[in-house]
Computed example of a mutant assay.
Amino acid sequence: MKHLESVKTINSTQSEWTAKGPAGIGSLTWKAEIIKDQKQKLLSWQSIEGAPVKNFGKVLFKAVGDATQIEITISYRAPLGIAGQGAAKLLNPIFEKLVHDDISGLKAYLES
Rank of each mutant, 00 (worst) to 15 (best):
1 M>L: 12
1 M>R: 05
2 K>R: 15
8 K>V: 15
9 T>D: 04
9 T>N: 11
9 T>A: 08
10 I>E: 00
11 N>G: 14
13 T>L: 01
14 Q>G: 13
16 E>T: 15
17 W>K: 13
17 W>E: 10
19 A>R: 07
19 A>C: 11
20 K>E: 01
21 G>F: 08
21 G>A: 07
22 P>I: 14
22 P>E: 09
23 A>C: 12
27 S>T: 12
29 T>R: 12
30 W>R: 01
30 W>M: 04
30 W>C: 02
31 K>V: 08
31 K>Y: 04
32 A>G: 13
33 E>I: 14
34 I>R: 00
36 K>N: 05
37 D>N: 12
37 D>T: 08
37 D>V: 12
38 Q>V: 14
39 K>T: 15
40 Q>N: 15
42 L>C: 10
43 L>A: 09
43 L>M: 14
44 S>I: 10
46 Q>N: 05
47 S>P: 02
47 S>R: 02
47 S>G: 14
48 I>C: 15
49 E>T: 13
50 G>F: 06
50 G>R: 08
50 G>V: 13
54 K>E: 03
54 K>R: 14
54 K>H: 05
54 K>L: 15
55 N>V: 02
57 G>N: 05
57 G>W: 02
57 G>R: 03
58 K>D: 06
60 L>A: 03
65 G>R: 04
67 A>V: 09
68 T>H: 00
68 T>I: 09
70 I>L: 11
70 I>K: 10
71 E>K: 09
72 I>M: 13
72 I>Q: 05
73 T>W: 03
73 T>M: 03
73 T>H: 11
76 Y>C: 06
76 Y>Q: 01
79 P>R: 01
80 L>I: 13
81 G>K: 02
81 G>S: 04
82 I>F: 13
82 I>H: 06
82 I>M: 05
83 A>R: 14
83 A>W: 08
85 Q>C: 12
87 A>S: 12
88 A>F: 06
91 L>Q: 09
93 P>V: 03
93 P>A: 03
94 I>S: 01
94 I>M: 07
95 F>H: 07
97 K>W: 02
97 K>P: 00
97 K>Q: 03
97 K>I: 04
98 L>P: 00
99 V>S: 09
99 V>E: 10
100 H>C: 11
101 D>F: 05
102 D>V: 09
103 I>S: 04
104 S>F: 04
105 G>V: 11
106 L>D: 02
106 L>A: 07
106 L>E: 00
107 K>N: 07
109 Y>F: 11
110 L>T: 15
112 S>C: 08
